[in-house]
């Protein structure tokens, strides 16, 4: 079975997206045999008040019983916007969301600002992951109104150092994984996981060897990236590279452990 830890619904303001509703994403999942998707509402990248996006996602998932069986919602929280603590509690405690996604570049804050550290500690205390995305879109074909900057794993080491006992999802690894020894030591002390959607993951066995087979989970970055590249990175692995059990962990087992589902 497949659990996609990196899916989205909602709009991207600079380009028409397809498969960006729960209904169309579910059809995509059925077409390609994906059982469950962790989903956030991209509108929250652009709304100043991100809670409106979380409410939209909550309402959309509640609109069809099939959605609540197949989607694991994550909240987008902006920790430098008024009311974020209430938003967090509402999303996690009342709406049943299973994690948070942060967008430091779009929401324009540094990951070591005090509210960010506080939010990550709250996520830790509720035992839910905090997800960072290296980029939402490829900046080479960005809109002139979009960000020029992208991020790398290195950019999130400072918050991992501040809160090493939180759970982290590092999504769409597209700009390499180069780290100093000190940064790598910080990473190794945390409970982190990469998804398989990012272009940096080329010779997959090298990444599994370098970081560990328990550090990767299937992800698509849908509907921005194509639906199958993240799956191919797992399915092309042969028996010399992973056992059947290990492949199943990459498909869903590692995600289940992280998400506790």
């Amino acid at each position: 079975m497949f659990i996609d830890v990196n899916a989205n619904v909602g709009h991207w303001p600079f380009k028409k997206l397809r498969y960006n509703t729960c209904a169309s994403l579910l059809r995509r999942m059925n077409q390609f045999g994906v059982d469950v998707s962790v989903v956030a509402n991209m509108n929250g990248v652009f709304y100043k008040n991100t809670q409106s996006a979380n409410e939209e996602l909550y309402d959309e998932i509640r609109s069809d019983k099939a959605f609540s069986r197949r989607f694991v919602p994550f909240a987008i929280i902006n920790p430098v916007y008024a009311g974020w603590r209430d938003d967090f509690h509402t999303c996690i405690k009342k709406m049943g969301m299973k994690g948070v996604r942060l967008h430091p570049l779009y929401h324009d804050y540094d990951v070591t600002e005090a509210p960010v550290i506080e939010l990550v500690k709250m996520a830790r205390d509720f035992d839910v992951p905090v997800a960072f995305t290296m980029r939402m879109v490829d900046s080479r074909q960005r809109s002139w109104m979009d960000l020029l900057k992208e991020s790398t794993v290195k950019d999130y080491i400072p918050i991992m150092k501040e809160v090493p006992d939180a759970k982290y999802l590092l999504l769409n690894i597209c700009n390499g994984t180069g780290l100093t020894n000190e940064e790598r030591a910080v990473l190794n002390k945390t409970n982190y996981m990469f998804d398989t959607s990012g272009r940096s993951i080329d010779v997959v066995r090298d990444f599994l060897k370098n970081f560990g087979k328990d550090r990767f989970a299937f992800g698509t970055h849908a509907p921005i990236l194509d639906y199958l590249s993240g799956m191919l990175r797992i399915e092309y692995l042969n028996n010399d590279e992973v056992t059947a059990e290990e492949k199943e962990m990459l498909r869903s087992g590692n995600a289940r452990k992280l998400l506790k589902i």
């Binding site: 059982d35 609540s68 509720f126 035992d127 998400l259």
Partner: peptide, 23 residues
């Protein structure tokens, strides 16, 4: 993992498996 995934609005932050089969 059958019967994924959660009860939205359950008031709980723990996983709430439902009984319906996932596909």
């Amino acid at each position: 993992i059958s019967g994924l995934v959660l009860s939205l609005g359950s008031g709980s932050h723990s996983a709430n498996a439902q009984t319906k089969q996932s596909s």
